[in-house]
Amino acid sequence: MIYLKNHKNKIALMFIFCLIISSLFIPAAAAQTSDEDIPVFLDGKQLEFDVPSRIENGRTLVPLRVIFEALGAVVQWNTQTRTVTAHREQVTVTLRIENKNAYRNNELVELEAPPVINNGRTLVPLRFVSEAFGAFVDWDKNTRTVTIKSPEEKKDVIDTDRGYPHSVTPIVGEPLITLSQARIWAVYRGAHPDFIEIAELYWEIGTELGIRPEVAYAQSAKETNFGKFTGVVSREFNNWCGLKIFEGGPCDEPDSHARFPNDRTGVTAHYHHLMTYAGVRIEGESLSPRSSLVQFGCAPYVENLGGRWALASTYGKSIVWDYLVPMQKVFD
């Protein structure tokens, strides 16, 4: 009886061992990863890579260094920390291998997928190319081709197609983008359903107050990570633009930020704060707790918000190039 019992234990242990060994092969299949030679064109010229791009869980990962250097960035690699740092003009981008948190001028950017290394080369999600240096990126699923337009190319587009003088973007005016376009763009960017739904409120209130709703909506996308509220401000605040209370406080403290009773009040407060920056008088009392602290009319253009609404000097430019311009590319 003792022999049989020991024999059964050995069989059970062997069975468990086989399960452990076989499980090692499961993640590779579940990851659904495949390398693929995807053509990438920058300003009409095809880029050459020494490693293929990769499709991972439905996300397109492309070689970072070749694209960033083609955009004029200086790329550095830290072997010890497995960190990539890229500099271009006033923008510094930092990311770490197998970490979804990247930083653009010390501002957190959550990646769709973590960077990976393939044959000694760093691959990053395609969308990050746009988020990093303001390039316009388009993926053609039919031809399986990536098209990238550099920020300089986009400048020509915005000047000629939208009439922005000297690449400055007015805050005041009629909408140049429809509500339908904005919603399609939000869906494409993987926005939270609440962010897609609140677009209607932005277009209603913005049109009524004479502020371009696409500008406020683009800023809200930046401040809330497309309604996912991945920062210190949670959804329950109904604070769609990161407004602080009158007393202010540390950026990483939730209590430093304003809370509003509902979305309409929060969106209206957002517009009232923008109106003060843009130099538009508010009828009645401002719903923004910090309007009185803003120099009236100091930022008639979105680009002027840099160093004012937020400390980063590129804050306003980021709203334009990383959010507003891609929204303009959507056709309803």
Rank of each mutant, 00 (worst) to 15 (best):
L209T: 10
E112G: 04
Y202N: 03
T276G: 02
G266V: 07
V62S: 06
I171K: 01
F195P: 00
F128P: 08
Y323W: 04
Y277G: 06
C18A: 10
V40A: 12
N57Y: 06
V51L: 00
T145H: 05
L176Q: 11
V74A: 14
R290C: 05
F15V: 13
I177M: 10
P254Q: 06
G173I: 11
K317S: 15
E283A: 08
E204S: 07
I55R: 09
V51H: 06
G284Q: 01
S130L: 10
N239S: 01
A29W: 15
P175Q: 11
R281P: 10
P250G: 03
G284L: 03
D255S: 11
I158G: 02
D138C: 00
D138R: 12
F49E: 00
N105C: 10
G173H: 12
L111G: 07
T33C: 05
R65D: 09
C241H: 15
T92C: 01
W139C: 04
I16L: 12
G279E: 04
W139L: 07
D138M: 09
A31F: 14
S53F: 03
H192G: 01
R144H: 06
R121Y: 02
P326N: 11
E208G: 00
L61P: 11
V233Q: 00
H273N: 10
A28S: 15
K8I: 15
I38D: 01
I67E: 04
I171A: 06
Y301A: 09
